[in-house]
Design a protein around this nucleic acid. Structure first.
Lengths: 345, 345
DNA sequence: TTGTATGCGTTATCAA
DNA sequence: TTGATAACGCATACAA
């Protein structure tokens, strides 16, 4: 690979002049500039990012740390973020924390040592030590989806309390009283918020929450299946379920299929987050969706702003999306369920 | 961030000794080794990868270039690859070519300038110049999913001809003669292979291929919807469809839904590639699937082998997966279709 | 307007 | 067994 020396030699100038010229300095004569450009082209010169990074103390890379790269919500976010960042000459280093705080921290340390220009992070960190570590990082950072208590950083995500509240209220107005919540990981911000939204709405309608109907998962399909199975085989099964995310809802639907339980006739199902396959699953899911592209765009914008010289002075910003309700065919009134059971053999 | 100098100062040795010691050289006394390790720990030293990369001429990063980061097939592959590479201390730089050869080449140039240790590439390159460029790259590379004609490199993917042949044969044996093919991008290797498999099987059974029933798409859902719509509104619509990938099949299914066409009663649908939602879509898709994790594992192994000192001498290897047939409810015999239409008002 | 020299943090060569 | 020094490729302060 051609280096700056090759260009300098060919253009018969010093390497500093080449550097100056190629970085658009004013103080280079039009004549030599042309010579240098020609030389650079003819040897196919492009600066070594490693050398630039070493010199500058940071590289033109952005780290993206997510819990599950195969989750459609995150993979769409990644797609969009990469798409936007590439236009700003940033490369995206992606790493999966697997929802594990220890691993997440290890990744962050690696990214920090790589001198990435910024990090987009969907954090699963909760312990005070880890939060302190986050604070100690002097790298532009934007949190997406999950907020971290005690860490004031840019954040882009939806109003999670509202999201589960919307679904819960709808189910209650549909006549349900015995509603289960397929929740996310305990302690995780989004999970807690969604849980709170569920509880608050139940309380607002004077309904008691059966704690045994709140089962936690890791936002993955397998656990969604298992936890749903657990609640569905009970004689006092719920008449409706609020799933904390799309993939767990899918697992729950699968469980109903396997048990032969009709959705929505016997059990209504609702979920937070859209998925590419939502339109063709049967029944169509009733859900509240976040505009993942909007999240990606705002996160990218926040991050790029922070990488500017004045970026460090920007006070933490937040962009909270209002989730959108999408009515499907996965909910029905429990009256129907009762009559369905009556008519069963 | 602490540098090697800090460690040297604290341990009261020269930086070269520190480097020697920390890189596990034999010729460092146990005593000084201990001192150096303690010093390194106490200042929290970790070597600067940028400096290491500059010195070594390559960085501990692997580039992964895919057409669509949101396609579940690719996102699952990415997940698995990242998962395996992180254990080998490699970071994954991911970039989307969007199926565009020009962009793909630009990305490859960027990755090359970054001195990545290797590249996993799902290539959409076809032109001789671009192929020549691929050949000129002196970076360990493994092709996945798509082969590149004229470029002998490691390859991991499935037998695409066989994949579409399996579906086509099944449909023919079911009684179909008027079969459409929702194909991939013309000129693209997998697309051509799948197309060939379809044609060869049709020919083997003495069936003529209606060229107007071979419509090409870019493996994306939108185009799948549009192209399917195009063939489904025809009075002489096909009785069965072989979709070249999962996402396009999804689009086709959506089109049937919108038109009120029953699947499989009126039109049978089959697809190549699994998807996380395949079990809960209605009807369950009949498909041939590739084990994407196996692809990821083999690709990673091939690549890591190539990054070893002896790696360059390994002759190009291939790992061709035999696709697996998965019977769903999305196919029926055209007899049924006829009777269905007869019974229609 | 251009050139010289230094340093970014490592590794490696050669001396000591 | 350890240390001084060069080199990787670039950007920049300072000289000319």
């Amino acid at each position: 690979m051609a280096t700056i020396k090759d260009v300098a030699k060919l253009a018969k100038v010093s390497i500093s002049t080449v550097s100056l010229a190629l970085n658009g300095s004013e103080r280079v004569s039009a004549d030599t500039l042309k010579r240098i450009q020609d030389a650079a082209n003819s040897v196919g010169y492009s600066p070594n990012p490693l050398a630039q990074g070493l010199k500058a103390g940071r590289s033109r890379m952005i780290g993206m740390v997510l819990a599950d790269l195969a989750n459609p919500f995150y993979s769409q976010m990644l797609k969009q973020v990469e798409n936007l960042l590439i236009d700003h000459q940033y490369l995206v280093v992606v790493a999966s924390s697997r929802g594990n705080a220890k691993r997440e921290r290890a990744i962050l340390e690696t990214l920090a040592s790589q001198r990435v220009s910024g990090i987009i992070l969907s954090s699963h960190i909760t312990s005070p030590e880890d939060v302190a570590y986050l604070k100690s990082l002097k790298i532009p950072m934007v949190l997406v989806d999950h907020k971290v208590d005690g860490f004031a950083a840019d954040f882009v995500g939806c109003d999670n309390r509202m999201a589960s509240a919307m679904l819960t209220e709808r189910l209650i107005r549909e006549g349900h009283t015995r509603i289960a919540h397929l929740a996310g990981v305990e302690g995780l911000w989004t999970a807690e918020e969604r849980n709170q939204g569920f509880r608050a709405t139940m309380a607002a309608f004077g309904l008691e929450v059966d704690e045994s109907l709140i089962l936690h998962g890791d936002y993955d399909g397998d656990i969604g299946y298992k936890q749903a199975m657990r609640m569905l085989v009970r004689p006092d099964k719920p008449t409706a379920v609020v799933a904390a995310n799309n993939v767990m809802a899918l697992g729950a639907l699968q469980a109903m299929r396997d048990l032969g339980i009709k959705c929505p006739e016997e059990v209504s199902l609702t979920a937070i987050d859209d998925a590419p396959w939502s339109k063709v699953i049967e029944p169509k899911m009733t859900m509240v969706v976040q505009d993942v592209n909007e999240i990606a765009e705002m996160a990218t914008r926040f991050l790029i702003d922070r990488t500017t010289p004045a970026g460090a002075d920007i006070p933490p910003r937040e962009h909270i999306l209002v989730p959108q309700f999408v009515l499907g065919q996965s909910i029905a009134s429990p009256v129907k369920a009762a009559s369905f059971q009556d008519s069963a053999p």
